[in-house]
Amino acid sequence: MKRRYAVLVGFTLLLPLIYYMVHPIQPEARLRVAVTSSLYATGLLDYVAKKFKDVHPDVEVLLIPVGSGAALRYAERGDACAIIVHEPTLEKSYLDRKVIEGQRILAVNYFIIAGPRSDPANISRARDVVDAFRRIYDAGERGLTYFISRADDSATYIREIKMWRSAGVSPTNRRWYVECGCGMDQALIMASELKGYILSDVGTYTALRARGRIQDIDVLYNGSTDTMLLNVYSGYIAKRCGGVEREYADLFLDFIYSNPDIVDRFGVKEYGSPLFYSTKLFGDRIVDLWRGLALGE
């Protein structure tokens, strides 16, 4: 009997220790931010969160990397207070349902088409992006190449579908059209392995390329000047979120918005060019561009 008590007492003494280990510091508030994985994977948000903590040391920013679709669902269920996503069409439907509010356009970059160096579809000579997609379709039909599609309802995938539709062709169920249902990183690696074409945001491509992971594909079509290939990242507040967390969510999104240099300078040293751009250059025009993308014009 005595031994049983000793074990019990010992265990009770252990509990505070375990608790202390799990919660070393109790921050005053925590802020849950669900972010799209392409933004998170580059490390931009960790960097931003660190800068934010310098100004507001009493907040713990918890970044949850998920797809844009899942991030919006998290906001709807109240599992995240702020979200950063890049899917205008879907964002608009959630805005219309009044699930999210307080939009701030935080960063932009653009999509590129990468493909094998030999460029069997000849897209480097394409007039515009729609022509490039038509060329890929023709080359695929002739068995010259593959196209790797995310096929995961991500912003990149939705944009890709729009491009095929604009080109007036449908690649679904074609043998050369590989639907991987995977993240941008893995899709790029697959494109490099299979020597196929792919639509990617420039940030993920640049970061992965610099790490030497995708040496068999190059940028063959650069969408930096094409509004059809603009990639817009917006921050929102979940309507269900309230109290202190909401105040900090507002502060956090405003912090990114009012410090465009953080976004513009991120990655320049590491990768030679910025991965994302602030909306400084666009001014008010960015809202119209976003609306254009949301309405699928």
Partner: peptide, 9 residues
């Protein structure tokens, strides 16, 4: 895993 990233819980 794919449905979860899509948000189709």
């Amino acid at each position: 895993a794919l449905e979860v990233t899509k948000g189709n819980f």
